[in-house]
């Protein structure tokens, strides 16, 4: 019984990335028939700019959720690293690349602090990262006060070489953000699915005690996943700063929920132990295509986009809940039969 159940979930799981892939293809076909402009490479790749930070961060939040944790502070770290970068460059006179590195290091420390509380003090991940999101947003605001520029204006006037980070286009069509995302996705894939570290992350998520007894430093592994996700958030913050040309402390404020949506949609179990980088990447692209295609092809206003994304999430998780649990499916079937009988 048990094996057949796990086999069944395994089969569904094997199909999961395939379903996501189908969703993306379906979206592209629908949007392309509605508006042929959609398929132009320049337009299609240009759409990546708006969702690139969600894509990048969700790759590494997958690690956190596989260990059974959750990270809702990533959005605030995006803003924090952006403003650290700006202030260090403008008011600290640091070289722009050194400033970027500084922002990444600071983000790593922030992730490390939260990870320490979660792994070594045993506090619930949700509470710690909730506290962290307040703390790091607040620190971001305080850092922005250090600058001579008013914080609501943001810091502008970055050097050309830094702005090029997001303006560069390979073969004239593929923007550098897409390339960075692909490189990071491959890196994350190798790290999670091909290395010893990745296996340890999975084992910690399946059973932390068993992992501990088999000689894995489970606490260190858990903490490291938060550092990883924080650093990826800072990378997203740097790219976003380069793309917008402005450093502000609140640019990541609305990212938290889309990130979690992407990870969950990608098939990662929120209870831990299961998930894949490929699934997250596909899910992020599916959400991004939806957010981009609806306004372009169906004239849906930007403000209403929460509804389709929310419905997509709800439909998929409800569908998975129904089909993932045979007893619920038979229960629903029975109800249907009864209804017909009457």
């Amino acid at each position: 019984m048990r094996t057949s159940f796990s086999l069944k979930t395994k089969q569904i799981w094997k199909k999961w990335e395939f379903i996501l892939f189908l969703v993306i293809v379906l979206e592209i076909v629908i949007f392309a028939t509605k508006n042929s402009k959609f398929l132009m490479p320049r337009v299609l790749f240009g759409s990546m700019n708006d969702i690139i930070s969600i894509c990048i961060i969700s790759l590494f939040v997958t690690f956190v959720m596989i260990t059974g944790g959750i990270d809702i502070q990533a959005g605030s770290i995006v803003g924090l690293s952006s403003i650290i970068l700006g202030v260090a460059w403008q008011d600290g006179g640091v070289n722009i690349w050194a400033a970027s590195f500084l922002a990444m290091a600071a983000a790593g420390v922030c992730g490390g602090i939260s990870g320490f509380f979660i792994a070594y003090c045993g506090v619930q991940p949700m509470v710690v990262t909730l506290g962290g999101s307040f703390l790091y947003t607040g620190i971001g605001l305080l850092v922005s006060k250090l600058s001579a520029t008013e914080s609501y204006k943001g810091i502008n006037g970055f050097p050309e070489s830094f702005l090029k980070l997001s303006k560069f286009k390979l073969f004239g069509v593929i923007p550098s953000q897409v390339i960075i995302f692909l490189i990071l996705a491959v890196l994350a894939y190798i790290l999670l699915h091909k290395t010893r570290y990745g296996r340890q992350v999975f084992l910690v998520g399946v059973n932390q005690n068993a992992a501990e007894y088999s000689g894995i430093h489970t606490k260190l592994i858990i903490m490291s996943t938060y550092v990883l996700s924080a650093v990826s958030a800072s990378v997203a913050g740097i790219i976003l700063t380069s793309y917008l040309g402005t450093a502000k402390s609140d640019i990541g404020a609305t990212l938290t929920l889309p990130i979690i949506t992407a990870v969950v949609l990608g098939g990662t179990l929120s209870t831990g132990g299961k998930g894949s980088v490929l699934g997250t990447a596909l899910a992020a692209i599916a959400i991004g295509t939806l957010r981009f295609g609806l306004p372009l092809c169906f004239k849906v206003s930007q403000q209403y986009l929460d509804i389709p994304v929310g419905i997509l999430l709800l439909v998929i998780i409800i569908g998975r809940a129904v089909f993932g649990r045979p007893e619920l499916r038979t229960y629903l079937m029975k109800m249907k039969w009864n209804g017909k009988g009457n």
Binding site: L257, T261, V264, T271, Y304, G310, L313
Partner: peptide
Amino acid sequence: GVAVLNIPSLIFTLGVNGVVRGIVY
């Protein structure tokens, strides 16, 4: 969603959050 369909509450209410916020708009 949470009690009958047994979906993790954070995820389900997250989806509902998106839909309800959209309805406000």
